[in-house]
Simulated scan of single mutants.
Amino acid sequence: MKRVLFALLTATALLAGSAHGASVRTTGLAGSDLTDPENDGRANEYANYNAVFRSSFAAGYANEGAFNVFDNVVGGGSDKWCCMMNGWVEADFGSKRYQLTSFTAASANDAAGRDSDIWQILGSNDGMNYTTIFSYNRDGVSPWGANRNQVIEYVAGTDFTLPAAYSIFRYQTFSVVSGGLHQLAELEFFGEEPVAVAEVPEPGSLALLGLGILAALGLRRKRA
């Protein structure tokens, strides 16, 4: 079953981007991400965040809850998410839409067998229909290897194709390296609001405008 899933997601990855040579951040988290640009989020009060969080397992912050992946801390315990191996967590920015330009994913403190080896980043604007932005598909291989509390950065244009603008970004895990538990320490999403393109008048409208100007000039000449 895992091989079938791997094959299906690999096909999807060819369209969405699935680079595995992303860079390790030696300085840790980037900070000032979309969920907390001011870096003042208070996890135990669920305050000062610029998004609403949801998850399929262990919603909340305490006891290795899912929302710990947005608390700006990498580590174990209340600084990570630990759950069954198939699950998702997402950040919803409401009326704001962003093109994802990069994101980071950090390993937690525990055994590397709990790292996801098949996972995706998805985008949505309605919470029902999701589009794959990035896929990691390496059966039995952790993106972090044996490194614990390590931050890896994935960048649009290098590791995945710059996507359309979305209001919801979801991390979805399908499998882990070994065992039945999944863990993740942190996620950071970075993006930009799309630039509005000014409407260009239709050629017919421009022609009518030109005729109107000529007519006005003709009237002025007659009066003169």
Rank of each mutant, 00 (worst) to 15 (best):
188 E>F: 05
176 V>D: 00
181 L>A: 15
190 F>A: 01
179 G>F: 06
206 L>F: 12
155 V>N: 14
170 R>V: 10
193 E>G: 09
166 Y>K: 01
196 A>Y: 07
162 L>G: 05
175 S>V: 00
208 L>W: 08
159 D>P: 02
195 V>T: 14
208 L>S: 10
164 A>R: 14
196 A>H: 07
146 A>E: 13
170 R>G: 08
157 G>A: 07
148 R>D: 09
172 Q>M: 08
178 S>V: 11
191 G>W: 03
184 L>W: 02
171 Y>I: 08
177 V>R: 09
197 V>G: 00
208 L>E: 10
198 A>N: 10
151 V>L: 01
173 T>Y: 02
204 G>V: 09
160 F>I: 10
158 T>F: 12
158 T>I: 15
146 A>R: 05
147 N>A: 15
167 S>N: 14
171 Y>T: 09
158 T>G: 14
161 T>P: 04
194 P>V: 14
202 E>G: 06
154 Y>T: 03
191 G>K: 00
205 S>D: 09
173 T>I: 00
168 I>M: 06
211 L>M: 10
192 E>Y: 04
174 F>V: 00
183 Q>Y: 08
190 F>N: 02
180 G>R: 12
163 P>D: 04
181 L>V: 15
196 A>R: 09
186 E>N: 06
179 G>T: 06
197 V>R: 11
165 A>N: 02
183 Q>E: 13
180 G>K: 09
169 F>W: 03
209 L>Y: 10
200 V>D: 04
156 A>W: 02
166 Y>C: 03
185 A>E: 00
146 A>L: 13
171 Y>V: 11
209 L>F: 13
158 T>Y: 13
157 G>Q: 05
172 Q>W: 04
182 H>M: 11
158 T>M: 15
154 Y>P: 01
152 I>A: 11
192 E>D: 07
208 L>Y: 09
190 F>L: 01
198 A>W: 12
193 E>R: 05
202 E>N: 09
170 R>E: 13
192 E>H: 13
186 E>C: 03
183 Q>S: 14
174 F>Y: 10
190 F>E: 02
196 A>V: 14
200 V>F: 03
169 F>N: 00
168 I>K: 04
146 A>M: 07
210 G>R: 11
175 S>Y: 11
154 Y>C: 02
157 G>K: 09
168 I>W: 03
179 G>L: 06
154 Y>R: 04
204 G>N: 08
200 V>T: 07
206 L>Q: 12
202 E>C: 00
166 Y>V: 03
159 D>I: 03
211 L>S: 08
211 L>I: 07
199 E>H: 12
173 T>H: 05
188 E>H: 07
177 V>T: 08
192 E>Q: 11
210 G>F: 12
178 S>L: 05
207 A>N: 10
158 T>R: 15
171 Y>Q: 08
168 I>G: 01
171 Y>E: 06
164 A>D: 15
149 N>K: 04
154 Y>D: 02
147 N>F: 06
186 E>W: 02
168 I>S: 05
178 S>K: 09
152 I>F: 05
148 R>C: 11
208 L>C: 06
159 D>C: 06
205 S>P: 00
167 S>P: 09
190 F>R: 02
176 V>G: 01
186 E>V: 03
158 T>P: 00
147 N>P: 03
164 A>E: 13
181 L>R: 14
188 E>I: 00
188 E>S: 13
199 E>G: 10
202 E>H: 12
175 S>R: 12
146 A>G: 11
155 V>C: 13
180 G>H: 08
